[in-house]
Design a protein around this nucleic acid. Sequence first.
DNA 1: AAGTTAGTTTGTAATATTTACAATTTAGAA
DNA 2: TTCTAAATTGTAAATATTACAAACTAACTT
Lengths: 143, 143
Amino acid sequence: MESTQDIVKKISDAGLKITPQRVTVLQMLCKLKNHPTADELFAEVSQILPGLSPTTIYNTLDTFVEKGLIKRVKTDADVMRYDAITDHHHHLYCAVSDRMEDYFDPELDRILSDYFNKKQISGFSVSDIRLQLMGDFNENNKN
Amino acid sequence: MESTQDIVKKISDAGLKITPQRVTVLQMLCKLKNHPTADELFAEVSQILPGLSPTTIYNTLDTFVEKGLIKRVKTDADVMRYDAITDHHHHLYCAVSDRMEDYFDPELDRILSDYFNKKQISGFSVSDIRLQLMGDFNENNKN
DNA sequence: AAGTTAGTTTGTAATATTTACAATTTAGAA
DNA sequence: TTCTAAATTGTAAATATTACAAACTAACTT
């Protein structure tokens, strides 16, 4: 769990001013594990900060992405989603339920980076490897 | 290169009626290597079929995806893209130029499927493995 | 502590993308 | 050729996102 102080430090370290909007958005993004959309974040953060403008959500998310505090994620299904976890990880995704979860696998990461260190792709230099594992969540794993 | 007859057969085999719109859309999608958006396809196909409705593009693409003739692709940047290549492949993607290319690597596919055959993810059953290789296209590889 | 200013938020409006739906047309079977 | 289900069209609406100017505020300076 990230304390408010950690959140504040992150934003500050990125060279951004500390505002209630930014702190709350980042905190919410860390708390919600379901890769929320801008709209979902707007709904959640609005409860804490009434009068929040949707534009602020978009601005804030864009700024955070730019500074590397969060990541954009897209599925094949719908709108943009956001992810506060910037540690290297992959995604499990079920197209039927449109549900997405994080997947960490250092062993796999090692295999992949070894592989692409050996194998050069002509005309392209790889900086990041992202997997999307398509499939089904078994019914007994609803968060 | 896919002949018109191949295209027609594909559509027909999917249990769909043959229409100029469908044939032209699928043909264009096979021809364009840049994972076009619905909008780009509308522009291209309109030149061949004036009077085409944007709605038809969306309908047609949805139907094709449903029947497995094409795939949806999303990058972290913008709108939905479409891909006529349904053979198993991955994507090279540069966020700066928003350029995307296909990447085929059977050796890698073997490694990955071996890996996930051994390693079970609890609560999730994998049906497809998609990689997005982020990075930069070297300047001398513009199609 | 108050003043200053660049950076941030807000609200409105515009744009872009996608979907809904009813009317018209057409492919392909009978 | 006729018929019917399926496909296409066009309009309009819903949704997602961006532009932009005005108002506000964090945090630096004095």
